[in-house]
Amino acid sequence: MATTLLSAGTRSRAQTSRAAFWALILRDATVIRKDLRLFILRTLIQPFLLSFVFLYVFPKIGQSVGGSSAEGQFATTLVAGVVGISIMFQGVQSVALNMAQEFGFTREIEDRVQAPCPIWLVALEKVISGALQGMVSAALVLPIASLVHARGVHASLTLHWWVLLTLVPLACLAMSSLGLVLGTSFEPRNIGLMFGFIILPITFLGGTYYDFNRLAPVQWGSWHWLQTLVLVNPLLYVNEGMRAAFTNIPHLHLYVIYPVLLAFVAGFLTLGLKNFSRRVLS
């Protein structure tokens, strides 16, 4: 056995925690590298199917979506939405599902929280690792979503680099924080409920297939009730943000998107970290 190891007790708390944090990130990277093909397939299958059905099959069979005017406009709207939804699924999958498994039948979490760092750092590592995976997903998905379409259907993409470089990471962080909240709120055996009651509504009412402005005609009297309702959905801001980053079509103002996403990150992290501590400590 080695004698060169610096005893963990003699190092500073910050050094020990930093080493533990990087080891956890390294472990996650190793797991993904080992299953890289699966990771890519899992990331691409949903965007591919969405693009295939909406942008290839629908135009082919003459079924128009998004109003009669322009399939091109719909394609542009959808490509941004597909990137947004991929970020969300990556966040939920990498954090919530893994956590459900580790809290549930494998009980691995019991070992992970023995890491020589504060417990919240173990949870935060999951969130950051999930956000990084979300960023990789976004980079993989954008080309697929913009390439799979029928002849004549064209998504007009314009990359706004500053928005892209700031908003994609923020969106990924918000969605993996949501993953932490979900993974620590649902009992592992009830994880199926999470998909039915949380993920599906978020997906369908998150502005993936339409942009926020186009919901205006849905109203009750003079009240744009659907527009009001979807404002609570974090995915809406992610998708609108992707529209701001990749397209020139109308979207929620960036002055709204940035602070609201930041607020979601803060809220989800606070709740998720509290849940996590409550679950692992007694």
Binding site: S7, A8, G9, R11, R13, T16, S17, A23, L26, R27, T30, V31, K34, T106, R107, E108, I109, E110, D111, Q114, A115, P116, C117, P118
Partner: peptide
């Protein structure tokens, strides 16, 4: 956090990392 640094813990249930190999469990 510092207390955990000087402890080794073997719990009642198997908490090995299922996504890693035997060697990687030790390495990480």
């Amino acid at each position: 956090a510092r207390a955990k640094a000087v402890q080794g813990v073997v719990s009642q249930v198997n908490t090995l990392d299922r996504q890693l190999t035997v060697e990687e469990n030790l390495y990480f």
